Computed example of a mutant assay.
Amino acid sequence: MTGWDISPAGVQSVVSNVRDAADAMNSGITLYGKSVEGAMTSAGTLSFGTDGVGGDAAGLVALALAKFVEGTERDMAFLPLRASNSANGAVEATNAYISGSLEQAWNAQRQATRAPDVTAFLEAARKKAGEGR
C-alpha cells in the first residue's frame, strides 16, 4: 500500500469514460432485447389443428431465439455490472486515499475487483419487472 500515487482528476476522467461506456452498453442491451423480441414476433407461429380450433404457438425460430437469450442472459448482465462496480470502487478507493485511509482505499479496490453477483441482480430485476405489471 505504500507505493500509491493516485491522481484524483485522472481517476475522475477514467471513471467518466467508463460510465459513458456502461451507458452505451445498457442502451445496446436494451436495443438487443427489443430486436430479439421483434424477431421472435416476426418469426411466425406454429398452427395446431386444421379447423382453426387448435390454436397457435411460438414458432421454432422464436423458441430458438428465446433459448439463446436465456443462455446469454448472465453474460449480458455481467458487462455493465462489472463496469459499474469497477468505476464505483475506483471512486471509493480514491476518496479513501484522499482522506488518508490507505487501508480503506485498499479494501475498496479489492472489493471492486470481485465479480458482481449477477444472480442476485437478475432476481431483483425480475422481481421489479413483476411488480410493474
Rank of each mutant, 00 (worst) to 15 (best):
T2C: 06
G3V: 09
W4P: 02
D5F: 04
I6V: 15
I6L: 12
P8I: 01
G10W: 05
G10T: 04
G10C: 08
V11C: 11
Q12I: 02
Q12N: 15
S13F: 03
S13K: 08
S13E: 14
V15D: 07
V15K: 04
S16R: 06
S16Q: 13
S16D: 13
S16M: 08
N17P: 01
N17D: 15
V18A: 10
D20F: 07
A21Y: 05
D23S: 10
D23N: 12
A24D: 05
A24P: 02
N26S: 10
N26G: 01
I29V: 05
L31Q: 15
G33I: 07
G33M: 06
G33V: 04
K34F: 00
S35C: 00
V36E: 14
V36N: 10
G38S: 13
G38E: 11
G38R: 09
A39S: 15
T41C: 00
G44I: 02
T45Y: 03
T45A: 14
T45M: 08
L46W: 04
L46F: 01
S47D: 14
F48Q: 09
G49T: 06
T50H: 12
D51K: 08
G52Q: 09
D56G: 04
D56I: 04
A57G: 04
G59P: 03
A62C: 03
A64I: 03
L65Y: 01
A66V: 00
A66I: 00
K67I: 03
F68K: 08
G71C: 02
G71L: 10
E73D: 09
F78H: 12
L79W: 10
L79F: 14
L81H: 06
R82A: 13
S84R: 08
S86Y: 01
A87L: 06
A87V: 02
E92K: 13
E92M: 12
E92Q: 15
E92L: 12
A93I: 05
N95L: 11
S99A: 14
S99Y: 01
G100N: 11
G100V: 05
L102G: 06
A112R: 05
T113H: 06
V118F: 08
T119H: 06
A120M: 02
A120R: 06
F121G: 06
F121W: 11
F121K: 04
F121Y: 12
E123K: 08
A124D: 14
R126I: 01
K127S: 15
K127N: 14
K127R: 10
K128I: 07
A129I: 03
G130R: 11
G132R: 07
